[in-house]
Design a protein around this nucleic acid. Structure first.
Lengths: 136, 136
DNA sequence: GAGTAGATACTAAGACCTTCGTAAGTCCAA
DNA sequence: TTGGACTTACGAAGGTCTTAGTATCTACTC
């Protein structure tokens, strides 16, 4: 029986570049095997099958995904919801690049991203709802 | 005469963790020597002087800062404005983690816990102003 | 003009990341 | 039950990042 385990010295918090790429596919798929994920990548990506397998194995060691054996292949599933990871990332970025004030961040987003009027309206509606909730 | 130059194969886009830490101090200071930057860091950071010097030298190779010799020391200055870098980072994050829709990003920020009511009000004001401008 | 304090340049170690080849394991069909 | 196709495990190469020590350089003082 193979080992397939490894201690983690420090808790890993964030996905690396490639891990995020893979996790994005898993979030979209819900779950998937090495082959499933590989198939989702852009054709020009040209990543070897074994590379993809290694990446997913490492992601499991880091507790970003779990695996379940089906037939002879492992099926991987995210352990971290996309929106939770989005929040975590924004919190980190706010702290490191926006002096811990998320308002600055929104300001920057709203003022220079190409955001449609509908998108802006939508966000304002969201804010209104949020502010009303706080009142209660 | 020493060399102090080096070719760049690929354009470096983003600051590493430590580089961001240093750049943050330079943004706050406007400019500064190795010693100046080092003095701004938290005392428990305990970074060797030569390490700080190396980091700034590398940052110059990557064109994140310029240097100017004053007396016997170099004074470093950001080549990249903080708000420009903030925008760049948000654009990248939006693309990689928010499906290219910055509105989702704002939504996540706003719906997330940990934002004061004042901050939310501030953002709403910002939005109102922005929406009004679009009308004209 | 030589000595010295302090600055810069260089090198390197150790960690992690990305990639892939090789070897070993596993399921199934004939 | 054995062969073959496919899968997983492991190791290693090559790259970047962070850190710091050593060597060299330089401006200033006496």
């Amino acid at each position: 029986m193979a080992v397939r385990s490894m201690r983690q010295k420090k808790k890993v918090e964030f996905l690396t570049e490639v891990e995020l790429e893979f996790m994005t596919e898993l979030w979209a798929l819900g779950e998937g095997s090495v082959r499933d994920v590989l198939a989702q990548l852009a054709p020009e990506r040209n990543l070897a099958y074994t590379s993809a397998a290694t990446i997913l194995r490492i992601m499991e060691q880091k507790n970003f995904v779990t695996s379940e054996k089906r037939g002879k292949t492992f099926v991987y599933k995210p352990m971290l919801a996309k929106d939770a990871y989005q929040s975590k990332t924004l919190r980190d970025l706010s702290e490191k690049l926006f002096d811990g004030t998320p308002a600055t961040m929104v300001a920057r987003l709203v003022s220079d991203q190409g955001m449609s009027e509908e998108a802006l309206e939508e966000i304002r509606a969201l804010l209104d709802r949020r502010l009303k909730d706080n009142d209660t």
